[in-house]
């Protein structure tokens, strides 16, 4: 595979097939954990490991797996990867583990992972599947960062990343717009961003 194709598969995940804004996949963790930049980065790391692992393994075994057991096998592989990530985070990144809470194990049913396994890795060679996993993860990360940034700044009146206060907005600090930090604030922000990206033509429906 040439560099051009690798780049194409990588780039498509960021804008054309952005998992959150275009494919509308993985909305559950996106809604739930996009309350701070820290959570967004922790979630991205977990998704990167799981998606990369599952895309590689599934691309490798794609020619042996009979259709009838396709889904159970994919799910077992994904669940194994998620459990491994879960244990490793618990052992070595306890703060991130605490922050992500239930949404770490729930990556098992994150439709981004199974969606890419089904739609891409089960039909493409390993190299393209790696490019696909990386691109989708970057797209997921950018979406999470964007949503988290807006929600954290408006909802808490400032931005702090890993304990460092980057800035605070004096007026908002005392009277933060709490709706943005609450779950329905997530719907609001995602909806407005989706609308904005469509209206300006940056992203299109598939």
């Amino acid at each position: 595979m040439g560099n051009g194709k690798f780049a194409k598969e990588f780039a498509k995940g960021i804008i054309l097939a952005n998992p959150v804004f275009v494919l509308a996949l993985g909305l559950c963790p996106t809604l739930a954990i996009s309350t701070s930049i820290d959570n967004a980065l922790g979630m991205t790391l977990a998704v990167l490991i799981v998606l990369l692992g599952s895309n590689i393994i599934i691309a490798l075994i794609r020619n042996f797996v009979p259709n009838i057991t396709r889904i159970p096998i994919f799910i077992v592989i994904i669940a194994t990867l998620v459990t491994v990530v879960n244990l490793i985070f618990h052992a070595y990144l306890p703060a991130t583990y605490e922050a992500l809470g239930i949404f770490l194990p729930l990556i098992v049913v994150n439709c981004i992972i199974l969606g890419r396994a089904e739609a891409f890795a089960s039909k493409n060679p390993v190299a393209s599947s790696i490019a696909d996993a990386l691109g989708i993860t970057v797209g997921f990360m950018l979406a999470l960062l964007m949503i988290s940034f807006i929600r954290q700044v408006l909802g808490t009146g400032g931005l702090s990343v890993f304990g460092h206060d980057l800035f605070t907005l004096p007026g908002l600090r005392d009277h933060p717009i709490a709706i943005f930090i609450l779950p329905y604030g997530a719907f609001l922000v995602i909806g407005l961003l989706m609308g904005l990206f469509r209206r300006t033509g940056v992203m299109k429906n598939e």
């Binding site: 042996f64 797996v65 009979p66 009838i68 057991t69 159970p72 096998i73 077992v76 592989i77 669940a79 194994t80």
Partner: peptide, 14 residues
């Protein structure tokens, strides 16, 4: 039997 055997192997490895 192949799908059953394969699934068994995958689960065992996992």
């Amino acid at each position: 039997a192949f799908p059953i055997i394969l699934l068994t192997i995958v689960v065992t490895v996992c």
